[in-house]
């Protein structure tokens, strides 16, 4: 039940392992700034990660749709989980859970908070305006 374009278990396993390594390398390129925040696309955030929307791609197809779903700059987003096959992902945004494909999540640039970030909803201006 894994990647359906692979025929047998072993190559599938190797491929996934390689993909995992490539992902790890991709993740390594995101460097945290002095406050511990990291700028990265939502699609590369991991379950449990938390951050704020920084910007949306300026001219992509789903820009307005994403905005209307609540992805406005400053909005808090927590990644809840990735589907067992790695895609789509579920995020918590504005108090509800939304699933979207990583392809669409790429359009959202996030400012990921450091893992020990104290999450206190009352202190944050969630509208960012």
């Amino acid at each position: 039940m894994s990647n359906s374009d692979n025929t047998s278990f072993l190559p599938a396993f190797c491929k996934r392992w390689q993909a995992g390594k490539a992902r790890a390398e991709a993740l390594a390129q995101y460097v945290a700034d002095e406050t511990g925040h990291t700028e990265m696309p939502l699609s590369d955030m991991q379950p449990g990660d938390f951050g704020h929307v920084l910007s949306l791609c300026s001219s992509c197809e789903q820009r307005e749709h994403l905005l209307e779903l609540g992805f406005t700059p400053g909005t808090e987003i927590t990644v809840v989980r990735l589907a067992p096959l790695g895609d789509p992902m579920t995020v918590r945004i504005r108090g509800y859970q939304l699933s979207l494909r990583r392809r669409e999540a790429e359009a959202v640039t996030m400012r990921r908070c450091p893992p020990d970030f104290d999450l206190n909803p009352d202190d944050i201006d969630r509208d960012g305006i």
Binding site: H65, L98, S99, R101, R103, E104
Partner: peptide
């Protein structure tokens, strides 16, 4: 590909 925005 169809967009997949689905509320859980």
């Amino acid at each position: 590909p169809p967009v997949f925005f689905l509320e859980m």
